[in-house]
């Protein structure tokens, strides 16, 4: 078990190295001079040159890479050219926001997706099943920005229940925090809920038709116990994998949703950074997100090993 874990950890080293190379070179392949982007409308060449020197952009590209990697190894992700702040500070500031939205989104998705999927499977080919199908398809196909705008129109303009935009940290005011995040989390959650609902439905149908469920029914167990304790437990394994994958995607930032609700998370940070060629920020955010993915993957691997003794050998 320990050897297997050690092996997995060792594999991470070349992965992260290749990852850092890809992040760095892709970013530098983008056309457009970052110094020009930062020099403002109609800059003079001296200013551009000064900015280039200030941020080390006049150094050969491999030196820039070495400086960056050297910094990363010591926990320094560089300096944001736009904000004049360390990238580490910006990442730490945005991470809780993105994390909170991702958690809320995935919880909403799991609750609606699993419940809806199970009901649809149990009531297969009834009007409830058709309705659940329509809802899940709508969840998948409705674009985030449209749904976001509709929610704002309803809850912020017509009913005036929720603020249309902004973000208040949990530590400042938990009620305002909930009020500002419930709509974006709902938008993020619906698309995933649709996918989860469809997967749960088919997995549940398969489970409900299997022999052990028939046996459980034959034993005279109540329908709820059969569905919840027997069928669902088995059907949910692939759903958890799916949920973990979708959660990983949410962590890279929900660009459109964050723009619509003016949520200061990773998505907004990276989009602005790409447009202003704020290299250090793009590299930092992509790296942190990628590390999250890798860690989640590793945790999933460990989880499987723990859950399934056959994998331990």
């Amino acid at each position: 078990m320990l050897r297997l874990l050690g092996h997995r950890l060792l594999q991470l080293i070349p992965t992260i190295f290749i990852l850092s190379l890809i992040i760095f070179s892709l970013q530098h392949l983008l056309p457009g001079d970052p110094a020009l982007a930062l020099a403002g409308e109609n800059p003079d060449p001296e200013t551009v040159a000064a900015i280039r020197a200030r941020y080390g952009l006049d150094q050969p590209i491999f030196m820039q890479y070495l400086y960056w990697v050297g910094g990363v190894l010591t926990g320094d992700l560089g300096l944001s050219m736009r904000h004049n702040l360390p990238v580490t500070t910006l990442v730490l500031q945005k991470l809780p926001v993105t994390l909170q939205l991702a958690i809320m989104g995935i919880v909403l998705a799991l609750v609606f997706g699993v419940v809806g999927g199970v009901i649809a499977a149990v009531r297969r080919n009834t009007s409830i099943d058709y309705a659940a199908n329509v809802v899940s398809l709508a969840g998948i196909s409705v674009p985030n920005f449209w749904l976001g705008i509709m929610l704002i129109l309803l809850f912020s303009i017509q009913l005036r229940w929720l603020p249309a935009s902004g973000y208040v940290p949990l530590s400042v005011d938990w009620r305002m925090n909930l009020a500002t995040t419930v709509m974006p989390a709902f938008v993020l959650g619906t698309a995933i809920a649709g996918i989860i609902m469809r997967h749960t439905r088919s997995a549940m149908i398969q489970a409900l038709e299997s022999d052990y469920v028939r046996t459980a029914r034959a034993k005279g167990l109540s329908p709820t116990v059969v569905v919840v304790k027997h069928a669902m437990r088995n059907a949910l394994t692939p759903i958890i994998t799916l949920g973990a994958l979708e959660f990983g995607a949410l962590l890279s930032g929900a660009v459109l949703t964050e723009q619509i609700f003016a949520i200061p998370g990773f998505g907004k940070l990276i989009v602005d950074a790409v447009f202003t060629r704020d290299y250090a920020v793009v590299q930092g955010v992509v790296l942190v997100t990628a590390l999250f993915y890798i860690t989640l993957n590793l945790l999933a691997d460990i989880g499987y090993i723990l859950a399934n003794p056959r994998l331990r050998s």
Partner: peptide
């Protein structure tokens, strides 16, 4: 002051009283 790149979103926020 808050930054909102999309003009439609800015207008929605104005309408909502935000």
């Amino acid at each position: 002051f808050r930054g909102m790149p999309d003009s439609n979103t800015r207008l929605l926020n104005l309408r909502s009283g935000q």
